[in-house]
């Protein structure tokens, strides 16, 4: 990314979900190597943003543009975005009965490898590779042979998301409230996963409700989303300020202009 093209450039993004307009002209630029935290009250559009970036079919983009490494992201199918390096850690990971976790991850990794013109990994090679990553996120190997997320505890599901992220090594990782409901140990694991990926050519968007995670994953920028737009942007101190004053503090602050380009 030495040519200065940002990892992600969102302009005037408007999107509808569930029959209502949720994003109402959102602008955001994420540079290569940066970690951005997105905070905001419930219903402000945080998850909708994650869904637009990953291409969830139920979300409809009505205006604006999203460039990913200089390319139009919105024209790509969800699986192609994934293969191009976009990863979403789901807020509610989905269960797939009868499909082993290991098989699922191997299929995902090999889809990306094939896309990059790399040789696909066989079962043995995959397992060896996965074991290293499991250590990083303190993942119980027994879960690898269970069906995808089936019967997993909330914490296990989130760890599973982070393991998948570690295995897929995305260029742009989007974490949708991965920290919610996690104890401090699990939070540390999530942070390890994100921090291990930090490098000059990778970026992350960490969506969170609480500033707690940001003690472990130190963001370069913090944005506050309110009513479908970025209401405030700043450094990590903005997160602390929010924690102290609460989101209601935003409502008295001038809304749109602050973030408009």
């Amino acid at each position: 990314m030495s040519d200065g093209v940002p990892m992600l450039e969102i302009k005037g993004l408007r999107a509808r979900a569930g029959g209502a307009e949720i994003l109402k002209g959102l602008d955001l630029v994420v540079g290569a190597g940066e970690v951005h935290a997105i905070m905001g009250p419930n219903g402000s559009g945080k998850s909708t943003l994650a869904n637009v970036l990953s291409g969830r079919p139920s979300v409809e983009v009505t205006a604006g543009s999203v460039l990913y490494q200089g390319r139009d992201l919105l024209e790509l199918a969800p699986e192609d975005r994934a293969k191009e390096g976009i990863f979403l850690a789901f807020q509610y990971p989905v269960e797939i009965p009868g499909v082993s976790n290991a098989y699922f991850m191997k299929a995902a990794l090999n889809a990306a490898r094939a896309h990059r013109g790399e040789e696909e990994l066989d079962g043995m090679d995959f397992l060896e590779f996965a074991r290293k990553k499991m250590k990083l996120v303190e993942f119980d190997e027994a879960l690898l042979n269970r069906a995808v997320n089936e019967g997993f505890s909330g914490g296990e599901k989130k760890r599973n998301e982070i393991l998948q992220m570690a295995i897929l090594e995305p260029r742009l990782a989007v974490l949708d409230e991965t920290d919610s409901g996690l104890d401090i140990d699990a939070l540390q694991v999530v942070a390890n996963g994100v921090n291990a990926l930090r490098s000059p050519d990778r970026s992350a968007i960490v969506i969170t409700h609480y500033q707690r995670l940001l003690d472990y994953v130190v963001p370069d920028f913090v944005h506050v989303l309110a009513d479908g737009r970025i209401a405030r942007s700043g450094g990590r101190e903005l997160a602390h300020e929010l924690e102290k004053k609460g989101y209601s503090w935003l409502e008295v602050a001038p809304p749109v202009e602050a973030a408009a380009p």
Binding site: P78, E79, K83, F87, F104, A108, A111, A112, H115
Partner: peptide
């Protein structure tokens, strides 16, 4: 969608 987000067609 979960599968597709992981690159699986």
């Amino acid at each position: 969608f979960y599968c597709r987000q992981r690159g699986i067609s």
